[in-house]
């Protein structure tokens, strides 16, 4: 790792404390050689209204998604993007964003598909930085281009496809959408327009743990003890079995993936990014409606 980790006591209780930095730590380390700060938001022009000095912008829709196929960019595309943003393979990347780091966690997960080693989240994200009265700037992005190697994506370890979910039945599934989406009252998050799923409900046997339960009021992650109570005690994720998390298009479940993998230390957690927009429109896949998980069909 290029830049030292944040030694904060709070983080030390998490399984991988090196994956988080505090706002104080970031303030003190801005400008450190080898450190690149990335803002990744839901809102495509929020960065331009003011961002952390020196931060570059990576947008989930225009930068990370392939513009034609429903997939992420490939190794060459990722290399070109990161090079343009001044990121090298050994850079320490700290990502932050709006909505309790919902989209920042999504970007971090995509970085992980390409095996970028040192990528961290700013605990509390954009909101906490602003609430603490720290500096923002409207300066245009001014990255010094860097060389980033072409590394092909390695999907299998952390990304699940529809067939993987069908083969996974009998092991834990986590649905991180709102209770209304889970029960089948609606197919999109409350206050979001309908987005392309033909059927409503959830994948059989999936437990409901809305993603935002992992975030505190100030947008930071909840403590280790609180997260253990939610995910281990309540949802029964004890780390003995592989887990798949999903939501609507895989963004909210990236946040949960981060919590399970890096804060609780569960191994073999995958994010099903096809999520409900695929499952809810696919032909001949089982669906359960109502607030109970339902039983797992035979794996196929």
């Amino acid at each position: 790792m290029t830049v030292p980790t944040d030694p904060s006591e709070t983080f030390s209780h998490y399984a991988h404390p090196e994956r988080l930095v505090s706002t104080e730590w970031l303030q003190a380390h801005l400008g450190t050689p080898g450190l690149v700060v990335v803002e990744s938001d839901e809102d495509v022009i929020l960065y331009e209204t003011g961002h952390i000095p020196g931060a570059v912008k990576i947008d989930w829709h225009t930068d990370l998604n392939d513009p034609v196929e429903r997939d992420y960019i490939d190794g060459a595309g990722f290399a070109a993007l990161l090079g343009r943003k001044g990121i090298s393979r050994d850079s320490t990347v700290v990502i932050y964003g709006d909505k309790s780091n919902w989209w920042a966690a999504y970007a971090l997960w995509v970085f992980t598909l390409f095996g970028h080693e040192d990528v961290r989240l700013l605990d509390g994200g954009r909101q906490k930085w602003i609430d603490e009265g720290r500096d923002l700037t409207r300066d245009r992005e001014a990255a010094v281009p860097a060389e980033y190697p072409v590394v092909e994506r390695s999907d299998a370890p952390i990304r699940a496809f529809k067939d993987d979910v069908l083969a996974h039945f009998g092991h834990p599934l986590v649905d991180v959408r709102s209770p209304e989406e889970y029960s089948g009252e609606r197919t999109t998050a409350p206050a979001y327009p309908e987005e392309g799923a033909l059927r409503a409900g959830h994948i059989p046997s999936a437990v409901s743990v809305p993603w935002a339960r992992a975030a505190a009021e100030d947008a930071t992650f909840r403590s280790r003890a609180e997260l253990d109570a939610i995910y281990r005690d309540e949802a029964g994720l004890n780390g003995d079995e592989p887990v798949i998390a999903y939501c609507r298009i895989g963004e909210r479940s990236s946040h949960t993936w981060f919590v399970l993998t890096h804060l609780l230390g569960l191994e073999n957690v995958r994010n099903y990014d096809g999520s409900w927009t695929e499952w809810g429109s696919a032909v001949r896949v089982p669906i359960v409606q109502g607030s109970a998980p339902g039983t797992a069909p035979a794996a196929r």
Binding site: V44, H61, P193, E195
Partner: peptide, 14 residues
Amino acid sequence: TQAVSPLRLRGMTA
């Protein structure tokens, strides 16, 4: 339509 996700544009349609 390329720069903003379809979901956001639907908000403007609404």
